[in-house]
């Protein structure tokens, strides 16, 4: 928080070192364990618990096993629908991607302050460094698979079916640009959606706090509507957390489809 009574909505994205600020280094770069790393660890641990609970191998699944199986089945169906039978081998990657982003998004929304915790949750996916790495990872897999499977024929991706001959000078350029924009759109979409939602919630909550503390009238006129809006946006943010994870996984599988099947 900045000065008293003036909430800084961007403060929640500040990375604060927890461990190893002074001497944890790798090739000259600081690799201090920060709140970002802590929330990645919490998300991964929660994900591990979730999947581990579904590994009972029961013929008639319980609720937990059913939940885990529905998630794996969801990713499996996503790949089967978008990539086809060849998509099966990407299930581990897409599942990891989807669940990692989903858990980071949702855990970043935890209202820990309500339970008296001093630390507020950190949304790992609200930093484009993280979403960028994930996007580059997906894009690299697409490139590697595409060139390994089709060689230089992969460049025919830039000439869609039915391109008129007289447009051959333009369409490949447009296609190439749209192809190269993919990792950026992938990374920025997730980062912006996460950041915007959290900023909005923070701004609205600062409205509630400052209006209520400046008297009954403003508390009623501004505070209550802001609070109601905040409740609605909280619900929306939970939805967005799921949708953005889904979009990331869906687009990655669509790009993988290009690499696998080359239209």
């Amino acid at each position: 928080m900045a000065e008293a009574g003036n909430v800084d909505p961007m403060h929640q994205f500040t990375i604060e070192p927890i461990l190893g600020t002074d001497h944890w280094q790798l090739l000259g770069h600081s690799i201090a364990f920060t709140n970002s790393a802590l929330w990645m660890a919490i998300s991964v641990f929660a994900l591990w618990i979730f999947v581990f609970g579904g590994m009972k191998h029961q013929l008639v699944p319980g609720r937990w096993q059913m939940a885990v199986e529905s998630m794996t089945g969801f990713v499996d169906n996503l790949l089967a629908a978008n990539v086809g039978p060849a998509g099966r081998k990407y299930v581990p990657y897409i599942f990891s991607l989807f669940m990692f982003i989903l858990f980071c998004n949702v855990l970043g929304l935890l209202p820990l302050g309500l339970f008296g915790a001093r630390a507020q949750p950190f949304t790992v996916t609200s930093h484009f460094t993280v979403t960028g790495v994930l996007a580059i990872l997906s894009f690299s897999i697409v490139l590697i698979v595409g060139f390994a499977k089709h060689g230089f024929h992969f460049f025919s991706l830039f000439v869609p079916h039915g391109t008129p001959i007289w447009l051959l000078w333009l369409i490949p350029v447009v296609e190439l640009i749209s192809f190269l924009v993919r990792p950026f759109s992938l990374a920025l979409r997730l980062f912006v959606a996460m950041m915007a939602g959290h900023v909005l919630l923070e701004v609205l909550s600062s409205f509630v706090i400052t209006s209520t503390s400046s008297g009954f009238l403003w508390g009623t006129v501004v505070g209550i509507p802001s609070f109601l809006l905040m409740i609605a946006i909280c619900a929306l943010e939970i939805l967005v957390a799921g949708i953005q994870a889904y979009v990331f996984a869906l687009l990655t599988s669509l790009y993988l489809n290009d690499a696998e099947n080359l239209h």
């Binding site: 990375i15 070192p17 790798l26 770069h29 600081s30 690799i31 201090a32 364990f33 920060t34 970002s36 790393a37 990645m40 660890a41 998300s43 991964v44 994900l47 591990w48 999947v51 581990p92 990657y93 599942f95 990891s96 669940m99 990692f100 790992v124 930093h127 460094t129 993280v130 790495v133 994930l134 990872l137």
Partner: peptide
Amino acid sequence: TYASQVFWLAIFFGFTFFVI
């Protein structure tokens, strides 16, 4: 912070991918 984020993401997403 980029190095730290990339490093820990590699560790934790790597764990997610290889173990989970």
